[in-house]
Amino acid sequence: MAQSGNHSVANPAGHDEHEGHHDLEALRMMGFWIFLITDCILFGTLFATYVVLHNNTAGGPTGAELFEMPGVIAETFILLTSSFTSGLAVLSMNRGDRKGLIGWLIVTALLGASFITLEITEFVKLVHEGAAISTSGSWSAFYTLVGTHGLHVSVGLVWMISIMLQLGRHGITSVTRRKVNIISLYWHFLDVVWIFVFTIVYMMGVM
């Protein structure tokens, strides 16, 4: 059955994948990979900015003084676990288990939400300790880099919820399958970015 594209119209020719009718879901998957390349460059630029500016504290507080590693390590493990559960969601989908799929997506989203909550708590605390985005070039770079990652995770959460609703409505079709694959890819990508944030910003910051 042709399920090419975001559509549910039956193909009147009654057969799949004929000449000139490209597999739209595969096309979209490839486009997302290329989007991830652009996102890599985006984070790369932010990392470069952080590396250049992180010593410019202008006499203000430094990361080494203010970072509290236990919270950051908790965030890290929560996000790593959520990456694992998003993988479990895809495995459930491949078995055709819609309930398992939506269940694991819910777990992933909850873990993502607790990551964001911890991050916001950390930011609020840092601001109270006198390290705001306007304090120095170093903190500007810190908030922008870590905040951009957090913004990505938050967008991913809204996106994941919308996909769960679509799964509830349409079940596992070629369209929703592609969407789940893409959000899971995105989630793993954010996990990888976080590993770099953890290493370059936090670990190298306190060492």
Partner: peptide, 28 residues
Amino acid sequence: PILTVTLALLFIDRYLGAHFFTLDSGGN
């Protein structure tokens, strides 16, 4: 993507008072 980031940083400087490219407080 580099342009997107660069303009965003300039905007953050102007809007939130950050110090990426300012002359004071460690901007460059």
